[in-house]
Design a protein around this nucleic acid. Structure first.
Lengths: 188, 188
DNA sequence: TCTGCCATGTAATGGGTTACATGATTGA
DNA sequence: TCAATCATGTAACCCATTACATGGCAGA
């Protein structure tokens, strides 16, 4: 159900259409939550039906019209209630780790390219987050004193940055391990 | 579908019953994958039907009998094929981050207890991982030279340790931010 | 006696992913 | 002319979570 809450938070930060939400889920909110447009449209419709959201038809020139959603009173109440409930600390789902342990029953060295690919992806994400941080928080254009919403967005982004740095360092460790195994026991 | 592969890896490391698998998913494999016994029994039945697993009835005294599963030839082939396929780099699903951004529209200081609770959970997990590392890899009883399977298990565990340390450091950052916001703008 | 562990399952629901579907505008 | 972007949706399937269900043994 947390997609509902992520959408509420995003629409409180700024009202928008399903399409715009889907784009945000590829960027800022995507740092910590993913969703496709199909999911988003379904949930928006349901939440609108439940009276949690307001909709406004926005005609546009040269573009398809869009429906701009914003959070209604009951939506705000639902979010507030959720904020005061405890949630379960996350547990990981890490496919690559399954593969690494599985590689013991195959050829460990064959995993090197795959791990390198993941390393590049996380490097790109890190660069992207750092650019966003400079643009929105630490760069010359950043407003000061910042408000609470911005401070909280920033601390979440710092979490994303820490996650990517940690992952990259770990993948270096994985690569070193795979290389070591390759030298000690070269595949037939 | 990666639960299938996680089960194959675990059964290759050591054959076992559904119940035993469920317990492993609470410990070592649980570092990077979670599953409940309901899921596990369903998947075991399906994979056995597909000829990927062998079953053996094991009568026990003083305990219910159990079914011991092990990986059959086709199961090994399925795992090998998956190991050679590329997989998508993970994306996060972090409820707590949604809450933190949402707190801007409520009372940020009210989140402090929740964040502290998560901090404790991650601290406990870290201690648990470190104890496992000492017991199985770096302690006096650990065999040397270790084989490939153990090396790979260790590098995955190091990933879990790095993840918990990173998370704890980030939660410290979050707490400092929440305290700062509380001082600057005390709630009514 | 009661809790917890061992051991296996079924059923209902809900959420997520993938595939399919349409159609206009802008820029290369 | 072709690809990309904007914009919205439906349908089917799979997977995961939650609740329900049983029953014996060991130890506090």
């Amino acid at each position: 159900m947390a997609l509902d809450h992520a959408i509420l938070v995003s629409l409180l930060e700024r009202p928008g259409s399903g399409y715009e939400l889907a784009r945000r889920f590829e960027r800022s909110i995507g740092y910590f939550w993913t969703a496709t447009h199909q999911q988003i449209y379904r949930v928006l419709k349901r939440m609108e039906g439940d009276g949690l959201l307001d909709v406004r038809d926005v005609p546009q020139r040269g573009r398809p019209d869009k429906k701009e959603y914003s959070v209604a009173g009951p939506g705000r109440a639902v979010l507030a209630a959720w904020l005061h409930e405890p949630i379960e600390p996350e547990s990981l789902r890490h496919d690559l780790a399954v593969k690494i342990r599985g590689a013991a029953f195959d050829d460990p060295a064959a995993l090197i390219h795959e791990v390198e690919r993941h390393h590049r992806v996380h490097g790109d994400r890190l660069a992207h987050y750092l650019a966003g941080e400079r643009r929105d928080f630490t760069g010359p254009g950043a407003p000061s004193p910042p408000d609470a919403a911005r401070e909280l967005q920033h601390v979440v982004l710092r979490g994303g940055i820490a996650y990517e740095r940690m992952t990259i360092a770990w993948l270096d460790d994985v690569l070193a391990t795979l290389h070591r195994l390759g030298r000690n026991a070269p595949p037939a």
